[in-house]
Amino acid sequence: MVQTLMLHPAWEKTIASNDLNQIQQLVQQEPEQRFIPYRQAFNYRGDLLVTVIVQNRSEHPEEWKEQPLAYVEKEQTIAEKNVSIHTLPPFTSMPWTFIFEKDLLNGQPELKGFLETF
């Protein structure tokens, strides 16, 4: 089944064409990954921003309500929190930025990690 790229309305208004092209390429290159890493950064408050492409590879809609999520680097959990996202239709990929507030961080991230659910 072909994976469809879906953008949140806020992304549709602000995404640069270069970013959109990169995201489309990543979806094609990493078809099996649950979270395809895209960007990691700190905002002006020191919060960790982790942008990934979330993929629903199943034939059923997927909704996250208070799903436990961890940011991990070098086999160490740097931050964790419960997150909610919009419903992902079947066979859909969507870029999403997860924010881990500064007070949730266990150590100083090197911005070379990944997300995992638990």
Score class of each variant (00 low, 15 high):
I78N: 03
K65P: 01
P109I: 04
P31Q: 11
P89L: 14
L115D: 00
E75F: 05
L48M: 01
W11E: 11
E32F: 07
F35E: 01
L7G: 00
V52Q: 05
G113N: 04
K74N: 10
H86E: 12
G46R: 02
K13D: 11
P109C: 05
V2Q: 14
Q28N: 13
E59Y: 12
L49H: 03
H8C: 09
Q3W: 09
T97G: 11
P31I: 08
T77A: 10
I53K: 07
S84G: 06
P95M: 03
I53S: 07
D103F: 08
E63V: 10
V72P: 07
T87N: 03
R34A: 14
E59N: 14
T92A: 10
L7T: 00
M94Y: 04
V83K: 01
Q33R: 12
E116D: 04
L20W: 11
A70W: 01
V54H: 02
G107H: 06
G107Q: 05
I85P: 02
E101H: 07
N56R: 05
H86G: 08
W64I: 00
R57V: 03
T77H: 00
E12I: 10
G46T: 02
W11K: 12
I99T: 13
R57C: 08
R39Q: 11
E59K: 13
Q22T: 15
P31H: 11
E110H: 10
P89Y: 06
P109L: 00
